[in-house]
Amino acid sequence: MSTLTSAANPSRGLRWDAWAIVLWIGAGLIMAAFLWVLLDLLGRGLGQISWSFITEAPENAGRAGGIGPILVSTLLILMVCLAIAVPLAVGVAVFLSELLPHRSRLRRIVQISLDALAAVPSVVFGLFGNAFFCIQLGLGFSILSGGLTLACMVLPLLIRTTESSIRAVPQRYRLAATALGMTRSRVILRLVVPLAVPGIVVGTLLALGRAMAETVALVFTSGYVDRMPGSLLDSGRSLSIHVFDLAMNVPGGDANAYGAGVVLIFALLVINGAVLCLAKTWKARSGMAITAAT
């Protein structure tokens, strides 16, 4: 029998030809490199984690003390980002998936420009945010500027995932609702979008992960200040910037850079786990697959 079938039934009777050995070794090396990065981070950083590290303010440029205000700033930036981006993305996704004919030219234009937006390097988003939000709109280096810049950045990803989860709502529910005399806008607002909510949540979590990982776009927009922010117009340092700053600009800051890095990884792991769980339970509950890609 051929062993060359699908991933579901791959290796029974595997012949240890030269290729198999090369592939196992290659794949093993790749994983080893990644695990090196991860375990190095955990090994050096886990020791730094304590309740006081999470809650206290940084001292001596971050060499001592904790990351309390930085966590608050990070959360605020992410909240601004999602508060702007999610409603916008849902609106655009409804337009693309429900209101436009499938093969219209407008739809293609919108999608190409969103593809291009997704490909713009984050450093360019940073410059744009700096020039537009900070200077032209006069928001200065602030949490608001940073959140708005990140909103622009995650928008394509959010629109994609939202659109595909709206599309995943089977047509028969729309027909059933229409046959019950519901108008089209009500079908969308009351039935289709609510049914797509779990998919939208997953998309939002993915966007959250992306935004949390971002560094350079925030350096130019939300700034470096590591004090507790008093308002959205204060500058606030995100966790990723904190890691960068401690590693690059603060001699002797490595230990706390690793500590902050572990917190960052942990947050991303939680998000990742939540995505997996949600996708699974939702599929079990409604039979609709979440088609959001990572």
Binding site: Y173, A176, A177, A179, L180, G181, M182, L195, S286, G287
Partner: peptide, 20 residues
């Protein structure tokens, strides 16, 4: 048309209650 559809119910081949 929405009033018409209220007056005339339609039952599909495959049962399709909303997943609610």
């Amino acid at each position: 048309d929405t009033r018409l559809r209220k007056q005339v119910g339609l039952i599909f081949q495959k049962p399709n209650p909303f997943p609610l």
